[in-house]
C-alpha cells in the first residue's frame, strides 16, 4: 500500500516537472528582445557594431529565429537527453557550467536544512513544554527577530562584523588556495570551515519559523486526552511528552520540508550573491541580466525541480511516519 502510494506520487512528478519546464521557459522568454539584442547593446557601448547579415547569421545559429513553441520543444527534447544547450555568453555547454554550482547549492541547502531541524526541534519542544518561561520568551524573541531580518541583511551585518572586528573577509566557500583546485579531503575540510556562515545566514529565518511551527503544534497536542492516558499509565513525565505529543507533532514538522526547501533555495540565491558564494545564485542572476536564456533556464528549471523533489520527499516521509495518512 505504501509502495503504490509512493509510485503514484512519483508518477505525478512528471506533469509537475513538465509544468515547471514550461514556466521556466516562459520566464526566460519574458524579457523583450533576446540575447542578441542585449549583446548588440553591449557592443554598442564600446562603439563596436555588428552588421545585419552577421546578426541574422548568429540568430539562425542559436535558433532564435524560430517560433517559440519550436524553440520550447527543441529545448525540452534536448533536456531529456541531458543536453541543456549552449550558453551564449560563455560559449560553453550549459551542463558544464551548472552541475558544479548546483552541487554546491544542494550541499548548502541540505546542510542548512539539517541545521535548521537540529536547532528548531529541541528549542521548539522546550518552548512548548515550558510555555511562558524565561527560556520560552528568549526563544520567541530571537525567533521573531530571525523571522524579521532578511537574509541579505544578516549576511551584511555578519560581514561587517567580520571586517571591522576580525579584519577578515568572511565571504566565499573556499580559501583562495582551494578555489580552483580539484576535490580533495583538504578542499572538503576547507569547505566545512567556510560553510557555517552561509548556513547561519540562510538558516536563521527558517529556524525561527520552524520553532514557531513546532511550538504551536506541540502546544496543540500537549493537552490531548492521549497524553493524559499515557500519564495515567505511570509513564515518567519526560517519556509521556517525548513518546506521545512530540511524536505526533513531529509529523507536521517533517512535512514542513515541503516549504522550507523552496525557501532555502530562494534564500540561497540572495545569500550567495551577497557572500559571493560559487553556488547557482550569482551565475543565474548574471545570466538573467544578460538574457543568456539557456543558462538562466537551466538554473530556474533545476532550482524549481529541487523544490518539487523536496515536496516529494516530504510527502513520502509523512506517509512513512503517520499511519493515519497511510490508512486513507
Amino acid at each position: 500500500m505504501i509502495w503504490t502510494y509512493i509510485f503514484k506520487r512519483v508518477l505525478w512528478m512528471i506533469p509537475f516537472l513538465f509544468a515547471v519546464s514550461l514556466v521556466a521557459f516562459l520566464l526566460i522568454q519574458a524579457p523583450p528582445g533576446d540575447y542578441l539584442t542585449t549583446y548588440v547593446a553591449k557592443l554598442a557601448e564600446t562603439n563596436e557594431a555588428l552588421d545585419q547579415a552577421a546578426l541574422d547569421n548568429l540568430r539562425q545559429r542559436f535558433g532564435l529565429d524560430q517560433p517559440l513553441y519550436v524553440q520550447y520543444f527543441k529545448w525540452v527534447g534536448n533536456l531529456l537527453t541531458g543536453d541543456f544547450g549552449m550558453s551564449f555568453e560563455w560559449r560553453q555547454p550549459v551542463s558544464d557550467l551548472v552541475w558544479g554550482r548546483m552541487g554546491l547549492t544542494v550541499t548548502l541547502s541540505l546542510a542548512t536544512l539539517l541545521f535548521t531541524w537540529a536547532v528548531a526541534f529541541p528549542i521548539g519542544v522546550y518552548s512548548a513544554v515550558r510555555k511562558y518561561s524565561i527560556g520560552d520568551y528568549i526563544a520567541t524573541t530571537i525567533g521573531f527577530i530571525g523571522l524579521a531580518t532578511p537574509n541579505f541583511l544578516l549576511a551584511l551585518i555578519l560581514m561587517y562584523v567580520g571586517v571591522v572586528h576580525f579584519g577578515a573577509d568572511v565571504g566565499g566557500l573556499f580559501s583562495s588556495e582551494y578555489k580552483n583546485a580539484p576535490w580533495s579531503w583538504g578542499k572538503f575540510f576547507d569547505l566545512c570551515q567556510h560553510l557555517w556562515l552561509p548556513i547561519i545566514v540562510l538558516g536563521t529565518g527558517s529556524t525561527a519559523s520552524l520553532i514557531r511551527v513546532m511550538r504551536a503544534n506541540l502546544l496543540d497536542e500537549l493537552h490531548r486526552p492521549y497524553v493524559e492516558t499515557a500519564r495515567a499509565k505511570g509513564l515518567s513525565e519526560f517519556w509521556v511528552i517525548m513518546k506521545y505529543p512530540v511524536r505526533v507533532a513531529l509529523n507536521p514538522f517533517v512535512s514542513t520540508i515541503g516549504w522550507v526547501l523552496p525557501n532555502l533555495v530562494s534564500g540561497a540565491v540572495v545569500t550567495a550573491i551577497v557572500l559571493s558564494l560559487p553556488t547557482a545564485g550569482p551565475l543565474m542572476l548574471q545570466a538573467l541580466l544578460s538574457q543568456d536564456m539557456y543558462l538562466a533556464g537551466a538554473f530556474v528549471l533545476l532550482l524549481s525541480s529541487l523544490t518539487v523533489i523536496g515536496m516529494l520527499i516530504s510527502d513520502i516521509l509523512l506517509v512513512l511516519l503517520d499511519p493515519r495518512v497511510r490508512y486513507e
Binding site: Y226, A232, Y244, P323
Partner: peptide
C-alpha cells in the same frame, strides 16, 4: 489504579 476516559478515539495515540 487504572483509568479510562470519555473519548476513546482521542485517548489513544493516533500514531502508535
Amino acid at each position: 489504579v487504572g483509568m479510562i476516559f470519555q473519548e476513546p478515539m482521542s485517548s489513544l495515540s493516533p500514531v502508535h
